[in-house]
């Protein structure tokens, strides 16, 4: 059975073949997830301890168990294009309880890394990068806070990159090594114009 049937678009969508086919699986995906996550995602036996522990699951369609299954089967597209991938709060409750000693949270992180390679990433993540590139801080200082700091006897800027901006070029070099700023700027621009 051909997967795209050549019907009018709406019908093609409605009647699409939803079965799992061999070519849905990319064995490389399983390997990549394992390499980046440094945990044994392929050992999942689908007990659901992870989802049962997950604070995001009860209020969304996010199912970490499903992502683990996708890691096992190599379902790269399905995993990386699912917007639920970004609903993990990284609380590690699943990782604490997983009987197979897997760290599912790190599997999610690895999948997010792989998604980013395909430019799939929510913009807020990139804005943190831009902020750190500029100031060294993800949540930078502001004038209200400077005044408050002074009032309680602290320096207006903390002794971080804020007080010592000469450290910022070093940070920029590291981020540039990975081309992270350029990529972030490009993606943010594409999304927000």
């Amino acid at each position: 059975m051909v997967r795209t049937k050549g019907y009018p678009a709406a019908l093609d969508q409605k009647l699409q073949d939803t079965r799992l086919h061999n070519d849905d699986s990319n064995p490389e995906f399983t390997k990549n997830v394992k390499a980046i996550s440094r945990t044994t995602a392929h050992m999942c036996y689908q007990c659901g301890t992870c989802t049962g522990s997950c604070p995001s699951a009860p209020r969304s369609t996010y199912r970490i168990r499903k992502f683990m299954r996708r890691a096992v089967l190599g379902l790269e597209n399905e995993a990386l294009t699912d917007p639920d991938l970004w609903l993990c709060t990284t609380c590690y409750s699943c990782s604490d309880r997983c009987p197979r000693d897997i760290i599912p949270t790190d599997v999610i992180m690895a999948m997010r890394n792989l998604a980013f390679k395909r430019d799939i990433i929510p913009v807020n993540f990139l804005k943190t990068v831009q902020s750190i590139y500029k100031t060294g801080h993800g949540v930078p200082n502001n004038d209200v806070n400077r005044a408050a700091r002074e009032k309680i006897g602290l320096s207006r800027d903390p002794p971080t990159t804020h007080m010592y901006p000469e450290y910022i070029p070093g940070i920029q070099k590291i981020l540039d090594h990975y081309n992270l700023k350029a990529n972030s700027d490009r993606i943010v621009k594409e999304r927000e114009g």
């Binding site: 992180m109 997010r112 890394n113 980013f116 943190t128 990068v129 750190i132 993800g138 010592y164 990975y178």
Partner: peptide, 27 residues
């Protein structure tokens, strides 16, 4: 700790590229 930066934020940076996360924290 003079010149320290963001740790960097484990959620944001870890999600984007763990290698950057390791390098920035290592700094």
């Amino acid at each position: 700790l003079k010149g320290a930066s963001c740790c960097p934020a484990p959620g944001a940076f870890g999600s984007i590229d763990l290698n950057v996360f390791y390098a920035m924290a290592a700094r």
